[in-house]
Computed example of a mutant assay.
Amino acid sequence: MRVLYVVEQGAVLRRAGELLLVERDRETLARVPLLRLQLVLLFGNVHVTTPTLATLLERGIELVLLTADGEYRGRLVGPESGSAELRVRQLEAARDEEFALELARRFVRGKLRNQGVLLLRELDEHPDLRSALDALRDALLRASRAGGLGGLLASEGYGSGAYFTALAQLLPASLGFSGRQRRPPPDPVNALLSLGYTLLTQRAVSALRAVGLDPSVGFLHQFRP
């Protein structure tokens, strides 16, 4: 997915032929081809001309608005793609408890495996990570045996707790990171993790919309008001 991030405060986004121009004080900061562009993220005080908005809508390029600190505000999207039948089938799949559990299990196991891979790369220099790796293996086993979403979420939480505790061992103590904390993040590492998750979420939402799926219909996290 080709993504444009605009962080320059006071910048203006405008179209010039088949290019998007990022300008500030009559200076062109960037020229980005519209071809294959799928997502534009604007941080803080960034302006977009009306013709540019029309072009983004016509070409199915989503525009996401965030604060200067990276908090999500909203998004501008064109007409829905895909068919209603596809979204109905997605909803039916989410209501199928056995199918939803198996798909959610794959999500959780994939996450836990990837966390383990990162720690394994550091094991030679940090032998004390072995206990966290053992905990992640235990979490993987628990996820495989979970008989419902509650047990699956518990195994994910157990494994992620061990992972973030181990991650703290790999970072300088001066950063003040002791584990994952949010709302608000109390240190630079947690702030960057929150920003990274926000950006990743927006890319995932755009990818789902691009194929006609509803990003609000999930499998691991079920429906709630």
Rank of each mutant, 00 (worst) to 15 (best):
M1I: 09
R2V: 02
V6R: 13
E8S: 13
A11M: 10
L13W: 10
R15P: 05
A16R: 15
A16L: 13
G17F: 03
E18F: 13
L20Q: 15
V22N: 04
V22T: 09
E23L: 14
D25E: 15
T28G: 03
T28H: 04
L34K: 05
L34T: 11
L34D: 03
L35A: 14
L35S: 13
R36H: 15
L41G: 03
L42W: 11
F43Q: 06
F43T: 02
V46S: 02
A54D: 02
A54H: 08
L56K: 15
L57G: 06
E58C: 05
E58F: 10
G60M: 12
I61G: 02
E62G: 05
L63N: 01
V64E: 00
L66M: 12
D69A: 12
D69P: 00
G70H: 10
E71W: 04
V77T: 14
S81F: 05
G82D: 10
A84R: 02
E85F: 06
R89M: 09
A93Q: 14
A94Q: 14
F99E: 04
R106E: 06
V108M: 08
V108G: 07
V108D: 12
K111E: 00
R113D: 15
N114P: 00
Q115D: 00
G116Q: 10
L119P: 12
R121T: 00
L123S: 14
D124H: 12
E125P: 00
P127M: 09
A135T: 04
A135I: 03
R137C: 06
D138H: 09
A139Y: 03
L141S: 13
L141C: 06
R145S: 10
A146T: 13
G148M: 06
G151L: 06
L152Y: 04
L153R: 13
E156A: 09
G157K: 06
S160Y: 13
A162N: 08
A162M: 07
A162E: 07
A162V: 02
F164M: 01
L167E: 03
L167I: 01
A168F: 10
Q169K: 14
L170M: 10
L171A: 05
A173L: 08
S174T: 14
F177L: 08
F177N: 07
S178A: 05
S178N: 01
G179F: 00
G179H: 00
R180Y: 05
D187E: 11
V189Y: 03
A191Y: 01
L193F: 07
S194Q: 02
V205Q: 07
A207G: 06
L208G: 00
L208Q: 09
V211A: 08
V211K: 11
L213P: 01
D214R: 15
D214F: 11
S216Y: 14
V217Y: 02
F219L: 11
